[in-house]
């Protein structure tokens, strides 16, 4: 089971639930289970079956660069966070 955190502004979809334990092998399954439990979630996280490009997944404190393919281990901590990576990832390209 992985502990999945709901971003503050998506907690309106979860009636205030801030985090929950989900049994999933990867992020794709995490999002699927979230959607089942809290309809509307995948609308906010996915576009055409992929993570919205402004979203990245953080697993155990590390920003994953694999998106939905990122594997989730037992006891993993999963967050959906704004894409802050370097380079041109981000609506706001980051400087040197």
């Amino acid at each position: 089971m992985a502990r999945v955190f709901i971003p503050t502004m998506l907690q309106s979809l979860t009636s205030g639930v801030k985090d929950l334990w989900i049994d999933a092998r990867n992020i794709e399954e995490v999002v699927g289970i979230l959607e089942k439990q809290f309809p509307g979630m995948s609308d906010r996280l996915l576009v055409e079956g992929n993570l919205v490009s402004t979203v990245v997944v953080s697993v155990d404190g590390q920003v994953s660069r694999l998106g939905l393919l990122e594997r989730v281990q037992d006891e993993s901590e999963v967050h959906f966070v704004p894409n802050m990576g370097g380079g041109c990832n981000g609506s706001h390209p980051l400087p040197e």
Binding site: G85, G86, G87, C88, N89, P93, P95, E96
Partner: peptide
């Protein structure tokens, strides 16, 4: 393809 020199990323990536 190499992403921008930005975000203090070059020495890392």
């Amino acid at each position: 393809y190499t992403s921008n020199t930005g975000g203090s990323s070059v020495a890392f990536k």
